[in-house]
Nucleic acid binder design. Sequence first.
DNA 1: CGGATGTATATTGTATCCAATTCCATTCCG
DNA 2: CGGAATGGAATTGGATACAATATACATCCG
Lengths: 216, 216
Amino acid sequence: MDSGLPVKRTIADQVAELVRQRILTGQLKGGQPIRQEHLAAELGVSRIPLREALKQLAAEGFVTIASHKGAVVAELSIAEVGELFDIRLKLESWLLQLAIPALTERDLTALEKNLEEQRRPDILPRWGDVNWRFHEIMYLPANRPITLKLLKNIHDKIDRYLRLEVTMRSGFHRALREHDGLIAFCRSRDVPAAVSLLERHIRDTARGLIASLKVQ
Amino acid sequence: MDSGLPVKRTIADQVAELVRQRILTGQLKGGQPIRQEHLAAELGVSRIPLREALKQLAAEGFVTIASHKGAVVAELSIAEVGELFDIRLKLESWLLQLAIPALTERDLTALEKNLEEQRRPDILPRWGDVNWRFHEIMYLPANRPITLKLLKNIHDKIDRYLRLEVTMRSGFHRALREHDGLIAFCRSRDVPAAVSLLERHIRDTARGLIASLKVQ
DNA sequence: CGGATGTATATTGTATCCAATTCCATTCCG
DNA sequence: CGGAATGGAATTGGATACAATATACATCCG
């Protein structure tokens, strides 16, 4: 029930997880340098597991490491954000198409339960997680774990920007409406309509985010 | 001309590159454990950069690290290989579609030059590289660097299995013919035909590889 | 024979030291 | 005065030694 994750986790893994979370939540902002000694002292660990964690995060694309200059929190250009949304578009519409015939009643009620949570007034700080979970529930029956993990990584990279967007306010209710529509099409097993709506959903989100990035 | 790679590379990066190559070329086989002390001594480095390299390779999916048990060269199940081919199918056909209108005469001659190299009798040990380079030249004009890097990673993971397949012999000439046809459709800017052929090309490769994996 | 125990081995983590590189301010010189 | 050279200071990268921890395997005993 723990999704196969190792029970005993090394310090390096815990540090990687923690730093990743700090980046996702904006505690560590893009472009910000990460001082090994300082962060290691703050976390109460030595530099070696921290350096291993940074190597891992670099491979995942959350930080960039320049030799002898250190790690800095990665920043995405507008073009890169757009590209990530394009990848989402291609892979998620494919997963949804595969998943719909395999969706169970349990999945559909889980989606509705998730949607209720999205409507709660204090959702904003947890929006990234809950929103991803919604998409994940839809795609899980497609039984494509590698693709799903890849998409999770992309969502994580994007959500950091989505999180602090003013667009959230305006795009928020639109997202809720589209999620609602997705559930309806999933329930009626209308693959073309669901895929079409999902593609519009992703494109809308991309357009809103990129527009707000450009004005800054 | 060095594609922006850092000139000064750390030992950890060099070790990661070397171990990755050993995995790709089959010098390190799937399931084989990697003993830190032994490998570090063999390479003449300490364990610290080696461990950082392994963390990076783990994040890239080339090894799996189990806590206190060590790193082992990752193995792909048949289902996982199939899934990777599916991702290739979706993303590469999209990139090709974007790239064809932007292909220059220089690109097309580069493709032909690459195809000549594919026809050389001593190509087999370099097939993985040359084959990827062929696809890369086609997709570069699409100007989607993140997607391209992602696909390169997938190619690397797959090529390890392709390399040692008996199918190579039978699938080899088919691949050459399909590459030839792709150049022709690219030259005539026939997007639907090119994409259709590329999809068949990827599906054929997948089918051949998976069939040969199953008999083992 | 089966389970508990102990031991060897490998990984993980810490501490310490040193080398290499980058950054930055100061100095030197035309 | 302006720009190049220089010389620390700070930081990262790497090595070594050692302690802690977990696993695997053999052994012992009831």
